[in-house]
Design a protein around this nucleic acid. Sequence first.
DNA 1: GCACTTTTTCATCAGGTGATGAAAAAGGAT
DNA 2: ATCCTTTTTCATCACCTGATGAAAAAGTGC
Lengths: 235, 235
Amino acid sequence: MTAAKPPSRNGVRASGRGRPSKAKGLDLKETILDAAEGLFARHGFHGVTTRQVAAEAGVDTALIHYYFGAKRELFDAVFVRRAQILNQVREASMNAYVAAHDASTMTVEGVIEAFIDPLLRISQDGGPGWKSYFALVAQVNNTPAWGGETMARFFDPVVHQLVETLKIVRPQAEYRDLYWCYQFLTGSMMLSLSETGRIDSLSEGECRSSDLEAVRRRLFSYCAAGFEAVIAKAL
Amino acid sequence: MTAAKPPSRNGVRASGRGRPSKAKGLDLKETILDAAEGLFARHGFHGVTTRQVAAEAGVDTALIHYYFGAKRELFDAVFVRRAQILNQVREASMNAYVAAHDASTMTVEGVIEAFIDPLLRISQDGGPGWKSYFALVAQVNNTPAWGGETMARFFDPVVHQLVETLKIVRPQAEYRDLYWCYQFLTGSMMLSLSETGRIDSLSEGECRSSDLEAVRRRLFSYCAAGFEAVIAKAL
DNA sequence: GCACTTTTTCATCAGGTGATGAAAAAGGAT
DNA sequence: ATCCTTTTTCATCACCTGATGAAAAAGTGC
């Protein structure tokens, strides 16, 4: 990084002399992120080369390093881009649920739905990039080497919000149990969101991975019943 | 593969003249598989080089190709080694459950326990390699590119056995619902078995990934309640 | 000791990897 | 037009990748 300083990687322009730059560069940046997202989602971090990303995005290899630095920084940029949106949407959804109810009308299933539904919605309606993104997150979630820290860094707050909200509905529940149940929930949810195609062949066509409406009809009540059973058993 | 023919990769000796070979070679083969298993589990297929595997196993790089051929074949060998054991154990466990009950005393939770418990048991008591192996399977399970086919090839039969056994307990349940619930179950189970450490930091020490006893106390009833809720809702 | 097979090592190849520095092109203000 | 900055391309480096052929070593029956 000695040639020409990259555009101050935090997003704020260096503002030397040239104007904020006509967004042509930003478009290209997004194009690179989209290409990287799709490839990383399918093949994982180590299964993708910067040259493949460049080819997919239709840019020169060096441009990737110009904008993002090292390959790992590119990956992080892909990860963080939608994580921020996701956290905003989920936090808003859970806040809205709490605001619309008081403690007597809140249910475990309602809280869980407020937690999961935004993800299903955005995967269905938010554009094609989101499916790749969820596959990516599912992969990171199951990566022992560095997945845990990455997930924690971005998604711990919203999970704590879920747990605290559930504590309102079931004050007698123990944190231990709620965290374990969350782990079960996130395993189911991530696998369903990543649409691996496994259930398609397994069920010989009865179920389709891409049918998130079918997931919605079942996952909320499945998880809610699971939470209730674990909480009840502990008492 | 032109120098000296490798030992007929299916396990049966070519039996030309030399005797079955004093198991020294087989020990080394297992050593390589163990090294590869641990590395693949931590870093994924593309995150590991044959040279790393060789170094970890303390053998020459060429020896890996001599025994296993291409890198991908090594991975498959790692995968298949314990998959066979796993399928035997699980099939036996479910058969034993069915044999010990008749239709009136079988429960959804009992069947699910017969399906999951062998994995928890073997992870706890079967030796250290199993933890790596489950992390590996969890990763493959969440790999869109080729994970689906790999999982199907090895694990479809035992899943069909689970579904058919559940059909005995709940004859009115639809296959659709059972397959979706299985997907939820396997997501929870695989994440718990792979011990990513995420729940440790998330719960600030309240829960430990390695505490499979805690998983056992919760996962069976969680999943069983989920199945029951989904089945009941569909009726 | 000797013929023969299997196992292990050594040296090496052709191609791909992430990354960089320097030059060229494009954009914008005066 | 011209200066200055930002963006994009080009050529290249040092290193690593999976894989292989040939030679050496070890094992085995006679």
